[in-house]
Design a protein around this nucleic acid. Structure first.
Lengths: 328, 328
DNA sequence: CTGAAAGCGCTAACAT
DNA sequence: ATGTTAGCGCTTTCAG
């Protein structure tokens, strides 16, 4: 393994000079710089990042910690973070927590122990609770997807209440009065979407069908089970809203197995716009989140914070879009 | 930041002893060990992995480099790798190459520069070409999903030829004679599936409709475009096979827009079993790969190789399953 | 503009 | 069983 000393010897300069060249620091004669670079090329030298990190206490790696890698939402976000980070010369490592606080803590520890530059996190409720008030994570951090009530942390979210209100209103205006709602449990997201849902009902003077409103783990299987229950209700819903695409997948399966026709027997809308939303028949009416922009914004906020830790914190709220298709 | 010296001082021992305790090395009196551990707890000490890595030249992190994070296949694999790695005390970082050799090289460089323990890779064709014959990556590596013609690298794959043959035979036995095939470009996977496809035609004495057989980038959009072209053929296919789920999604969209009925106007089968395969109507007949097992096997092979680099190499071929639904 | 030398936090010989 | 010491590969003062 060729090291900085080898380059220094070959170039007839000191390791300090080579280091300056590699880091593009000033005070090196262009001629020397050129010679060093040539030797670096020729000897195929690569800087040992571990040593560099240890000595200078810096890293060019950021982490993205998501709660569910199988959720298309996070895939798009991930791609955006990748793209943005690359532009700024950072690498991204992706960790999956499965909404499991244990795994989340393990990932967070990994970051600290490996001395990474910063983290973009969609936190579990447990982590969120830790972030209250005077908490200081000691590392640049941006929270996405979930609202964090702490003025010292950057936050990228959407207006869930408003979006849910719009989506629910659409369901109501389609003619539904008795409406079921399946919301993700364990995150602010689900609760906020529930709140918007309730507001829309109120706007239209509809009494909420509390027996048709459920919170559950945001997975397809749970969506299926919940909707199956709703459909067995003596007075079943005429419309259903799900708070993410995985729940929607489960819900659609349950509706299909129950031989109900969408939208005539039952209307259906959901948050998120996975690729299959327009594949199914009838195509699904959804609220689309600006996933790519969420990722990019988060990455840029994080990198700016890394470069200037004293920078003031901010919360960015991005706009969503109602996409009307045939399911409602 | 509390360091090993602080612990040593507080416990009245040397840093060497603390290091031995932390690494669970022998030759430490149980009593001393206990005392040190208590202080570690109390002072909330965390070992600096960067320093540890630099000094001992070891890491407990492995990387999984996939060609497309939006492909459900790799999501399942990723989860399996995570699970297995965790059991062995390793962390996993995930990198996405988008089938882009540049990004792939950047990821590979990251691993070397950060001195990670090893890598599980689904390589681009370009990387695969480098692995021929006498190549030595200098780092424990397991190749998944794609066949590598190098006896010095561990490899986990499925029998694509056989699986494609089975799937195509199913299409033929359903009554299709004129069959279209859309295969992923730029990987051994697509070519092997194409080969099995051709074999099945030959088995049944069917002349391949060469104008209906296409190679393309394995993305939904390209699947859509290709199938649109096939359907405009004066003698369009009566059945279509796609070599992954993204192509299938595109194909289905094209069929739907063309107002054709599945399976009566046109039958449809695909590789991969994404969650939406049973959501659409009619549900999709597929070859299911043992995704979870692929990931777990790869992780275990890698970790064994890390622990014993002289271990003999092996190729593991896993079985697939035909799942017959209503699309054919 | 360049070099010498110290040292980041830790582990691994080598002593004792 | 434990301590002493050297040094992993690099960056960063501080001199010159």
């Amino acid at each position: 393994m060729v090291k900085i000393k080898d380059i220094a010897d070959a170039a007839g300069v000191s390791t300090a000079t080579v280091s300056r060249v590699l880091s593009n620091k000033p005070h090196v004669r262009p001629e020397v710089k050129k010679r060093v670079m040539q030797i670096v090329q020729k000897m195929n030298y690569r800087r040992n990042r571990v040593a560099q990190n240890l000595r200078s206490n810096t890293s060019k790696i950021i982490a993205l910690i998501v709660s569910d890698i199988e959720n298309p939402f996070f895939q798009r976000v991930s791609r955006a973070v990748d793209d943005a980070a690359f532009e700024y010369g950072y690498s991204v490592i992706l960790c999956n927590t499965d909404e499991n606080p244990g795994k989340e803590e393990a990932s967070l520890n990994l970051l600290r122990d490996e001395n990474l530059a910063g983290v973009i996190l969609s936190p579990t409720q447990q982590a969120l609770d830790n972030f209250r008030e005077d908490f200081d994570f000691q590392m640049p951090m941006v929270i996405i997807d979930r609202y964090v009530n702490n003025l010292n942390i950057d936050n990228v979210i959407i207006d869930n209440v408003q979006a849910a209100r719009t989506l629910t209103a659409h369901l109501i205006e389609h003619g539904c009065q008795r409406i079921g709602g399946i919301f993700g449990m364990g995150s602010t997201t689900g609760r906020e979407r529930h709140e918007g849902f309730m507001q829309a009902l109120k706007d239209h003077n509809i009494t909420p069908a509390t027996d048709l409103i459920k919170f559950t783990s945001p997975k397809a299987e749970d969506g299926y089970n919940m909707v199956m229950k709703l459909l067995q209700n003596p007075d079943p819903p005429r419309g259903i809203l799900t708070s993410n695409s995985l729940l929607a997948a489960g819900a659609l399966l349950a509706i299909r197995e129950s031989k109900l026709a969408i939208p005539d027997d039952i209307a259906m809308v959901s948050f998120d716009n996975p690729t299959w939303a327009k594949l199914i028949d009838p195509a699904l009416t959804v609220i689309e989140q600006p996933t790519y922009e969420i990722g990019r914004t988060a990455a840029e906020l994080l990198i700016k914070r890394i470069q200037d830790p004293t920078r003031s914190n901010r919360q960015v709220v991005l706009k969503t879009k109602l996409i009307v298709r045939q399911s409602c």
